[in-house]
């Protein structure tokens, strides 16, 4: 099997990887040191491996690394600015949205994708967005509160939220 050279942008930085055609994006990202991408099932069911591909949540266990060629990848490692946490991360900590933390990177990324598209989501929209990420610890009450609180914080920080173009939230990681 021949090897492929792919180029992708990860958290804003250009990356060049040599991969095998069958390599999963999940495995390549972890191999390259993006440890925040978690393996929970490898079959696209639990969402722990979710990353943003061109801004959209995907389960990285269902994506070949080669499919990321030329695309923009965001992992949890790119969310904080150095030591400064993003409001979504702050909200998850302040509202008790983190327990074991294994699904947390995926929840944070899915939240960012949701809030980029729908800055002031309803609770139902939040639940829809989070439903692709399984969590066995929290019962989801606190993660949902964290997302709503993050939305409020981000909206307060923005000069004016654009009301137009509001679409229903799409389900986060593909099931």
């Amino acid at each position: 099997m021949g090897e492929l050279v792919i180029r992708a942008t990860v958290n804003g930085a250009p990356r060049r990887w040599t991969v095998a055609p069958g390599d999963l994006l999940l495995d390549v990202l972890r191999r390259e040191g993006y440890w925040g991408v978690k393996n929970g099932c490898e079959t696209g069911e639990c969402g722990a491996c979710a990353v943003l591909l061109d801004g959209e949540p995907v389960n990285s266990c269902l994506v070949f690394a080669a499919q990321a060629d030329g695309r923009r990848i965001e992992t949890v490692e790119g969310v904080a600015a150095g030591d400064r946490l993003d409001p979504v991360q702050e909200a998850f900590l302040d509202h008790g949205g983190v327990q074991c933390g294994y699904c947390t990177p995926a929840m944070i990324l899915v939240t960012r994708a949701l809030l980029a598209r729908t800055p002031r989501p309803t609770e139902d929209e939040v639940r829809e967005a989070l439903s692709g990420v399984f969590c066995r610890c929290t019962g989801f009450k606190k993660p949902v509160e964290a997302v709503l609180a993050a939305a409020a914080r981000l909206a307060d920080a923005r000069p004016a939220a654009p009301p137009a173009g509001r679409k229903p939230a799409r389900k986060a990681a593909a099931r």
């Binding site: 949890v76 490692e77 969310v79 900590l93 933390g101 990177p105």
Partner: peptide
């Protein structure tokens, strides 16, 4: 907040 929360929300090596 959880005392170990920072590493969990930033995806630092923990597990």
């Amino acid at each position: 907040r959880k005392v170990d929360g920072f590493k969990l929300v930033t995806g630092r090596t923990a597990f």
